[in-house]
Amino acid sequence: KGRPRQDGGPLGAQLLGRRLGAPIGTQRVLGGDGDVPILTTKDNIVSQPAKILNFLRKQKYNADYELSARQGADTLAYIALLEEKLLPAVLHTFWVENDNYFTVTKPWFASRIPFPLSLILPGRMSKGALNRILLTRGEPPLYHLREVEAQIYRDAKECLNLLSHRLGTSQFFFGDMPSTLDAYVFGFLAPLYKVRFPKVQLQEHLKQLSNLCRFCDDILNSYFRHSLGDG
């Protein structure tokens, strides 16, 4: 509870749910992460994006059944790359960068959880994000936070470049329908692409990669058109 997401985010789980016709909705969880994806079946209620994706596979809702063994291996490799190279900078952008945190992330998050948790949980999430970044990146020779920040943004931009190169002119990463990799990439990129931040270092780099922006727009228009709003 209170731990920053690290599994592709709720949009990724909702994308696969809509793509496969699985019963995923959103639910406001008191004391939890605010609006999170919830999969409800006759016998189960499953939350958290990664757990939902695993549950869908076990229930034969498999977006990857047409992938080759090589493509399946590539999926795992790119997901690992996202979590190692892109996630730290995304966490920093949302939860550690002061201007973004105090003007965007904290007010949005606090508005979705009840008082007095709204006074406590955003700060806990911010500290958790910083601790995760320092735990994975704050080792020699990167002793200082400023050095860590510079490195994680270099890594993230390199990761975005690799994703852009891999996607090329294709609509999705494999074939003509979203797969698990598309869900993970979309879950990371869509919030970064759409949220209006005061500090936009990583966002600016993403917006220079037109195929990744088109990828996000196509999925939003195809699978989230009726739920797009200002919130």
Rank of each mutant, 00 (worst) to 15 (best):
C159S: 08
H226C: 05
Y193E: 11
N211R: 13
Q203L: 08
Q151P: 00
G231E: 13
P141Y: 15
S179Q: 06
L209K: 13
F186D: 00
E149G: 02
R214M: 08
T136K: 14
P191S: 09
P141F: 14
L209V: 04
V200D: 11
S164N: 09
S222A: 15
L162V: 04
L228W: 07
T180V: 02
G231F: 12
S222L: 11
F186M: 00
F197V: 02
F215M: 09
L181V: 01
R146C: 05
C159K: 01
L192R: 03
F172Q: 00
R214H: 14
G168E: 05
L212Y: 15
L160K: 08
L145D: 08
T169M: 05
L209E: 15
L189A: 02
L206M: 11
R154F: 07
K157C: 07
K157D: 05
V148A: 01
C213F: 13
L206N: 13
G168I: 02
Y184G: 01
R225F: 11
L202V: 05
P140L: 09
C216N: 14
C216L: 11
E204P: 02
K207H: 15
G187H: 10
V185K: 08
R146M: 04
T180S: 13
L209A: 11
C213R: 10
P141S: 11
S222V: 01
L145E: 15
Y193W: 13
L228D: 08
M177S: 10
H144W: 10
F188H: 14
R166G: 01
K207E: 15
R137M: 06
F173M: 03
V185W: 10
F173E: 06
G229R: 06
S222P: 04
F224N: 00
L145S: 04
A150D: 08
S179T: 14
K199S: 12
P198H: 15
S222Y: 07
A150Y: 07
S227N: 04
V148C: 05
T169G: 05
Y153P: 03
G231N: 12
A190P: 00
L212M: 12
Y153K: 04
P140F: 14
L167S: 06
D176G: 01
H205M: 06
R146I: 01
Q203F: 11
R196S: 09
R166M: 04
C213L: 09
R225C: 06
G229I: 02
M177H: 09
N221F: 00
F215S: 09
L160I: 03
M177Y: 06
Q201E: 15
I219C: 12
P140D: 10
Q208L: 11
G187D: 10
S179A: 03
E149P: 00
S222Q: 15
E204A: 10
L145G: 01
Y184D: 03
E158V: 02
N221L: 10
V195G: 04
Q203N: 13
D176N: 09
S210L: 12
F215H: 14
G231M: 07
R214S: 13
S164W: 06
I219T: 09
Y153H: 14
I152E: 09
Q151C: 03
P178H: 08
